[in-house]
Amino acid sequence: MSHHLFLLSPSDTPLYSLTHFSSKPAQTTTTSPLASNLPSWSTSAFAGTLTALSGATSATQAYHAQGGTVRMGGGQDRHVIQMIANASLDVIEEIVRKDNLMYLKSVDKFNEWTVSAFVTPGNMKFVLLHEARNDDGIKSFFHEVWELYVKTMLNPFHTAHTPIRSPVFDARVRASAKKHL
């Protein structure tokens, strides 16, 4: 089961992206029509099998071990993920105008993917693609990413709305994803 996070500036430029393979077993095993077109490793069914076979912790290692497959499949899959994230921006924009909540849960759905978003007061958008419902975990995850983002902003050497390249930021977001997703 994987999660995809994108941080987007107010002008919808991607500033940071993260792909996280969760070690938690997937709850849903339903396959959608599109899933048959995708490489089998990207569907939640396969992740569930892997986890069941090899135990929770080694599932992530298995992904890294077959690096060649992941890279090839990732290349094919990547643009679909980006397209889903981009398509959801229209919906987010519409909600943001009327609703004053920062955490927008399940704003959009596309086959097995659900899109949740978080909008900061400065109109930065955090978009997360996920497969299973996990409202509380995603909310805590967004809160931590928000705090990290605010700290990045406070760095006087960081220019706003430019890609975030800090390795510490990356490590902290990964740790947070591991904890909550």
């Binding site: 909540l101 920062m102 955490y103 900061t120 007061p121 809160h143 705090e147 605010v150 902003m153």
Partner: peptide, 16 residues
Amino acid sequence: ELMAHRNEAAAKAPRR
């Protein structure tokens, strides 16, 4: 960003 984070981070549902 900082002001909003300080005011809203503790809230259950942060608002803009």
